[in-house]
């Protein structure tokens, strides 16, 4: 099989598991773990031959992270 596909699935599963059960229960830690899962999904999409899809996915992930940072700064801290 493709080595990028195997590494991408490993990173995607680790990111999703770490984002579901984080050690520190605050928003920033959880957001960084979501970033790991996005990188793993980008590595999975690299195994197929779609360049425009990868470009759009990376750009939209960055914009979504900026929007989520704005939301976290405004809201009150969680428990």
């Amino acid at each position: 099989m493709n080595p990028e596909l195997i590494l991408g699935f490993i990173i995607l599963l680790a990111g999703v598991a770490a984002s579901a059960f984080p050690r520190e229960r605050d928003y920033i830690s959880r957001l960084i773990h979501v970033e790991i899962a996005g990188t793993g999904l980008m590595l999975v999409m690299l195994a197929y031959d779609e360049t425009i899809a990868i470009l759009t996915f990376v750009a939209v992930t960055a914009i979504a992270t900026i929007v989520l940072i704005r939301v976290i700064e405004r809201g009150e801290p969680c428990d």
């Binding site: 920033i28 957001l31 960084i32 970033e35 980008m42 690299l46 360049t51 990868i54 470009l55 990376v58 750009a59 960055a62 992270t65 900026i66 940072i69 976290i72 700064e73």
Partner: peptide, 23 residues
């Protein structure tokens, strides 16, 4: 994919700097 690599290398510090604003 060289263009994808250039785009990711440019966007990666931008995301980190925006997370650093919150920390």
């Amino acid at each position: 994919y060289l263009d994808v690599a250039i785009l990711v290398a440019i966007i990666m510090p931008l995301t980190t700097i925006f997370i650093l604003q919150a920390t």
